[in-house]
Design a protein around this nucleic acid. Structure first.
Length: 298
DNA sequence: TTCCAGGGGTAGA
DNA sequence: TCTACCCATGGA
């Protein structure tokens, strides 16, 4: 039996679902799926033992409509959880006013506020985002998609009534063990890092979700992330953005290429030059970088 | 074959 | 703190 409800998700100002889907690569990684023609974002999600399927679509300029199919009726608590996860994934509660004011003074980003851009698509848990970040390092995007797809299909919960699988739980990944992660998911040398992260979260030795609510300075959160094996400077910077900390840019080959071409006439640039290139955006500099990149590389 | 991709861990200085 | 070297995988 499948039940369905509809929710309206309002933003404080304009919001574009298409811009969210294109904010970075996450809409191409399961359990997300993005239909560019229809402008619809799908996701299979696990709420405890209950499976649900999300379908996001643009309703009005400041509202996203969320249709939720579930295998059983949703309790009031389930609906609250669905609502909270959806708002988190779409970054709907990010206070972007100050970032938008800074954009208006920038020739490249002046169009961002009116287009409802500026939000990053996130997974429903920091754990999932952390695993995905590890799967983006030192590999091609095609291989990242392959690793995440095999991880979700091999260890994620599914139901006959739904198309996709949910992202695996830390408990499920820890129980599967390193051999499955290495031989079936083919995570390569990332295997022990991913396994150990799943085990620590499953055993409550590590609470990644607390990063969302932390009031500690970004530099302190960065130190904590760098202690996790498999997460280095690049992955830590990506994760900081995904928990709403935008004051540190993750310098990868794309960032260096962008800053080199935009600000230094194609000459090689250092990490410090990348950080300083967006200094005028203050604590929003990483967000400015992401949307510069969106325009530059498409 | 060799190289390397949206890096990161480790040993050694 | 900085530098070499190694790391699984798969496409070019």
């Amino acid at each position: 039996m499948v039940d369905a409800i509809r929710l309206l998700l309002r933003a404080d100002g304009r919001v574009s679902l298409r811009a969210l889907a294109h904010s970075h690569g996450w809409s191409q990684l399961p359990p997300f799926g993005w239909d560019d023609d229809a402008g619809v974002l799908h996701r299979t999600e696990q709420l405890g033992t209950l499976m649900v399927e999300f379908e996001f679509a643009q309703a009005t300029g400041d509202t996203i409509e969320l249709s939720v199919r579930s295998e059983a009726g949703l309790s009031a608590a389930d609906q609250d959880e669905v609502f909270a996860r959806a708002r988190w994934m779409l970054s709907l509660d990010e206070p972007l006013d100050e970032f938008y004011r800074l954009c208006e003074d920038d020739a490249h980003l002046a169009h961002v506020p009116a287009e409802g851009r500026g939000r990053m698509l996130r997974s429903s848990s920091v754990f999932e985002d952390a695993i995905k970040c590890i799967c983006t390092t030192n590999t091609t995007w095609a291989q990242t998609k392959g690793m995440v797809r095999r991880l979700v299909e091999t260890l994620g919960t599914s139901r006959p009534a739904f198309d996709g699988h949910a992202f695996p739980t830390p408990q499920g990944m820890a129980a599967a063990g390193e051999s499955v992660l290495r031989d079936e998911v083919r995570l390569g040398y990332r295997t022990p890092y991913v396994y150990e992260l799943a085990r620590q979260v499953a055993d409550r030795e590590l609470d990644l979700e607390a990063l969302r609510f932390s009031t500690q300075p970004t530099a302190e959160l960065r130190k904590q992330l760098l202690k996790i094996k498999g997460i280095g400077p690049y992955a830590a910077a990506s994760l900081l953005v995904l928990v709403g900390r935008y004051d540190h840019i993750g310098v990868d080959s794309w960032a260096q290429k962008l800053v080199s071409e935009q600000f230094y006439a194609g000459q090689p640039v250092t990490e410090a030059q990348v950080q300083s290139a967006f200094e005028s955006f203050g604590r929003w500099r990483a967000l400015a970088y992401y949307f510069y990149r969106w325009d530059h590389f498409g």
